[in-house]
Computed example of a mutant assay.
Amino acid sequence: MSHSQVTNPNLYSLRDILLLSQLLHINKIQTLQDLESIDNDLFEGILSQWKTHISTQLQHKTIKVNTLNQLKELYRKLLDKYKVDNTESLANEVYYMRIEELEDTIEKKRDEFTAVLNS
């Protein structure tokens, strides 16, 4: 997989992005500048948590980011895509989109259930 595919923000679900932004936030990585100067152990810890988190496992998905440069490039592209300038804004933006996504899923399931019930 090429570097640009690994850092393409469109390949990550809202769930993936929300989790990453939460992990960055709780580890006080608020800006690209913070990410530039991150301690390697902290970077490895965040990456490991992102890859092994239950929500990632539930999707049977493999997070392909392996290097700090890949994470920085992805983060930069995520900030651009969601038109925000820090981790907290990214988390907030994606959180509300994720809630909407879940509400749509619930509505579809409700409709399917009603259709099955009435058939």
Rank of each mutant, 00 (worst) to 15 (best):
T7R: 00
P9C: 09
Y12H: 01
Y12W: 04
L14W: 02
R15H: 03
L18C: 14
L19C: 01
S21I: 00
S21V: 02
Q22V: 09
L23E: 03
L24V: 03
L24K: 00
L24R: 06
H25P: 00
H25V: 07
Q30W: 08
T31F: 03
L32R: 07
L32Y: 05
L35V: 01
E36C: 10
D39G: 00
L42I: 15
L42N: 07
L42M: 09
F43H: 00
F43M: 04
E44P: 03
G45A: 06
I46Y: 02
L47A: 03
L47Q: 07
S48E: 15
W50V: 06
K51I: 05
H53V: 04
H53C: 02
I54V: 15
T56M: 03
Q59V: 02
I63R: 04
K64H: 13
T67P: 10
L68Q: 01
E73Y: 09
Y75V: 01
R76D: 11
K77R: 14
L78E: 06
D80A: 09
D80Q: 11
D80W: 11
K81C: 08
Y82F: 14
Y82E: 08
K83E: 11
D85E: 11
T87P: 01
S89Q: 10
N92T: 14
E93W: 06
V94S: 02
R98H: 06
E100I: 11
D104V: 09
D104K: 07
K109V: 02
D111W: 05
D111Y: 14
T114V: 09
T114Q: 14
T114R: 10
V116G: 05
V116P: 06
